[in-house]
Design a protein around this nucleic acid. Structure first.
Lengths: 214, 214
DNA sequence: GCCCGGGCATGACAGCTGTCACGGTGACGA
DNA sequence: TCGTCACCGTGACAGCTGTCATGCCCGGGC
């Protein structure tokens, strides 16, 4: 495979890529996949969100390929941090769950591309190239459902109580954790249940999470 | 990298591998990783559990590398089906969640190996070789926690009601779905809550799922 | 200055959840 | 034959959940 010229005129240099995924096997496999491309070079691999920026600063990638669910910091936080620390570096988010809420937050955080792990493997390298060229790479179906779903209707406090509800905490525990009264917590829960169209706080939390609202 | 001789004396032939994972990107990346090994050949890739046996029959793999969570049939069902249909074919289960319950059921279904996606990438090929040689490949930490946790204490009916509880169904819905009275359902739920050491049916269902009891 | 929304709170209420006691039936193993 | 276990059921009860009405305070936008 011949090496194409890079859009910014840098000549024969390969696209330098940093990979972040908490699963070592998946990360290594993705590195192997990208290493097949002569114009792409994997220069760093990390397994935690909070290792992305230090590793990027040390290795100087052109593109960061980031999973979302990682310890230390999630991929969206890492995206924002990368954009701040290395403005010339572009971010491609690669995630298991194609959640419209994730897509929106990723783009808001500065990601150039967003693909899900259902994507055919051969498209990953192309996505990296396109992102490197400054082109948007977003799964069309996901973009469509993101438009349909609209913005997150939950207030900050509603999100707070739902996050604790996800852990199975009782109203009294949530109240204690957020320094609110139990009645207030019940009001926020009830409101969140209404906005998600569910009947219990557990369902509300799950649906909010699925939509990327949490 | 030189090709080692195979343990069964088949000579220079590479180990034929079938890959099953519902995420195309992960599946393709794993195929790329294994394809780097001169003694391993990926002969088929499928994305659904119920495609495993037909594909295996068509391609004649020595080892099937199976994810667990797949549409059509999960990797444990696929393991049992492969062992029945092609007794000479060995199975290596590769999964995201290292759940002791999964491990036990996978081994009971006939899997020779069981690794989690936290495994370093370079160990996958070695795991495939060892499984091909008939050797057990099991993550030691997982094996240890599997022994500690003991068997699944839930009765069939308790599992049934917890599965429906996972979907957020109310007692009346669960009763209707299983043709039981509401009181009976509450008794089973209460018993399952006790056995999982939780306080709500949602937590009980989640914990049971985490332990591989569901 | 007014209006609106979010945050926070109290209180009342209907219905649900989970626990517990008790009991019948059938299968199975000793 | 007996004991045990799972399955199934009823009923009572305490406490929790979710809804709803109502109201205050504060900050932002018009």
């Amino acid at each position: 495979m011949s090496a194409p010229s890079t859009p910014d005129g840098a000549g024969a240099g390969a696209i330098r890529v940093l990979l972040a995924d908490d699963q070592a096997l998946v990360r290594g496999a993705l590195a192997a996949l990208l290493a097949l491309e002569r114009d792409i070079e994997v220069v760093a691999e990390v397994g935690r969100g909070d290792e992305v920026v230090p590793a990027a600063q040390a290795s100087g990638p052109d593109v960061c390929v980031l999973d979302i669910e990682m310890p230390g910091a999630d991929g969206i936080e890492a995206t924002a941090a990368v954009r701040r620390a290395l403005p010339g570096c572009r971010v491609l988010v690669v995630t298991t769950f194609g959640r419209p809420g994730y897509l929106k937050r990723a783009l808001a955080a500065g990601a150039t591309g967003f693909v899900v792990k259902d994507t055919p493997a051969r498209q990953l390298a192309d996505a990296v190239r396109r992102v490197h060229a400054g082109l948007r790479v977003i799964d069309p179906a996901l973009a469509a459902s993101s438009l349909v779903e609209g913005d997150n209707p939950l207030t900050e406090r509603e999100q707070d109580v739902l996050r604790l509800a996800l852990t199975g905490a009782a109203v009294a525990d949530i109240a204690g954790g957020l320094h609110l009264s139990q009645g207030t917590v019940r009001n926020y829960l009830s409101s969140a249940i209404g906005k998600t169209g569910t009947t219990t706080r557990y369902e509300a939390a799950r649906v909010a999470q699925e939509r990327g609202w949490l």
